[in-house]
């Protein structure tokens, strides 16, 4: 019985199955090549994106304030630029009379802020934001001298 099985198996194995047309392999090769190309392009795109972000990110971050040296004395009398005087006239930031303890002698708060590297526009925005605070856990308006202190330091 086993011999007849083996014989039949050998006869069957001798028959060669029909091979697919050469175009089938050609199609396989082209599809694989196309996948490889798409993957390379995706990787390249990702590298360019990450590189671009790495280059652009530092310029998007807020600049650190340049802190003046602690030993650098604040000017006893600071001459404010004309534009700053205009600003103060139209929208006084703070009154030095209210915060004598904080203000340097004869030095406006603006000059003090400037010494810490802040602009009047930035501080006006801060004041505006402070005035718009409506959170019940925070006072509606915080004293400006606190703002100046926190903002500057």
């Amino acid at each position: 019985m086993n011999n007849s099985w083996d014989e039949l198996e050998q006869k069957l194995a001798a028959l060669r199955p029909d091979s697919p047309a050469p175009a089938v392999w050609e199609g396989v090769r082209r599809r694989i090549a196309r996948r490889r190309l798409l993957r390379r392009r995706a990787v390249l795109g990702l590298v360019i994106l990450i590189g671009g972000l790495a280059l652009a990110l530092p310029s998007m971050l807020p600049h650190q304030a340049v802190r003046p040296s602690q030993h650098q004395p604040v000017a006893s009398s600071v001459k404010l630029p004309h534009q700053v005087k205009q600003l103060l006239r139209h929208q006084p930031l703070v009154s030095s009379r209210r915060f004598p303890r904080f203000a340097a002698p004869q030095c406006s708060e603006l000059a003090y802020l400037r010494a810490w590297g802040h602009s009047s526009a930035a501080f006006r925005r801060l004041l505006l934001k402070n005035s718009l605070r409506k959170s019940p856990s925070e006072p509606r308006r915080r004293p400006e001298y606190l703002l100046i202190r926190e903002y500057s330091q």
Partner: peptide
Amino acid sequence: ESHSGPLLLLARQWGASRSDAEDILQ
């Protein structure tokens, strides 16, 4: 080349035509 013939044969056992079997193989 060594395996495509038997694979094609198998696909055709299910009644697929030769062209369909080649698509399946690819």
